[in-house]
Design a protein around this nucleic acid. Structure first.
Lengths: 119, 119
DNA sequence: ACTTGACTTGGAGTAACTCCAGGAAACTAG
DNA sequence: CTAGTTTCCTGGAGTTACTCCAAGTCAAGT
């Protein structure tokens, strides 16, 4: 699988995939032609990275995670812990969304009241 | 009110407040000593900006919003529309969180299964 | 043979901060 | 009244995580 197809499957842009490879988050094999060839495992890994990044995990933490991943099976406990911590972080984000929704609803209702008082 | 107190109330760092002022998102009066003096209205506005930014509104859109705000009451309809659109965006974000939560839960459960199969 | 399209690299540009150096004004302790 | 600490100011450099671009290679289609 070449980069555009992998990009379509994992959600990351080709540029971002190359950037992640350069910074060591993923290792991708090359064909005899020098082009990147993505394995299903590559795609699964990149998809996971996509979701972690999309929900605000910083690169530093992703690097820690990637380093554990590359060390193999004995780091699964640490990886689980890291993912659970990120799940905790998602709850915080959700509370932020809730809070912002309240702020918006309040603001919109005062705007609507203002508009009625003008009209 | 001076900048550190305003920062504490609105959630933005002093540096970010200065950055927002420089880029035109807010106008802040100065005292005779040259220091910024924040009105309650300033703080309310900055708090709104904080929430919009925190939930992913890009600077470009915030500038549009700020420009409407500075044009006065006749832009309230436009401002309401903009906020409602952002509220829509919040729903998208929440779906992303949901989706990531599923991905994480699945990954954690496969990790746990793997760990049991090793141990 | 030639164009088109997907890929490669290295490097510049961008968004939105964040930090820092250097300096002024004010408050606080001795 | 002086010395030190805090809080503020400005302009500018540094950071994160991309994103875009120029210049070049290679394979496939017409």
């Amino acid at each position: 699988m070449k980069i555009s197809e992998a990009s379509g499957e994992c959600g990351l842009s080709p540029d971002t995939i190359r950037f992640y490879e350069k910074s060591g988050l993923v290792q991708i094999a090359r064909g005899a032609d020098g082009l990147r060839r993505f394995s299903p495992e590559n795609v699964e890994w990149l998809t996971l990275l996509y979701w972690l990044r999309q929900t605000g995990m910083p690169m530093k933490v992703m690097h820690r995670f990637a380093s554990l991943y590359q060390q193999g099976a004995e780091t699964i406990g640490d990886r689980t812990a890291l993912l659970l911590q990120h799940a905790e972080h998602l709850r915080t984000r959700r509370q932020e969304l809730d809070c912002c929704e309240l702020v918006l609803a309040h603001k919109v209702s005062t705007y609507e009241a203002l508009e009625r008082s003008i009209a």
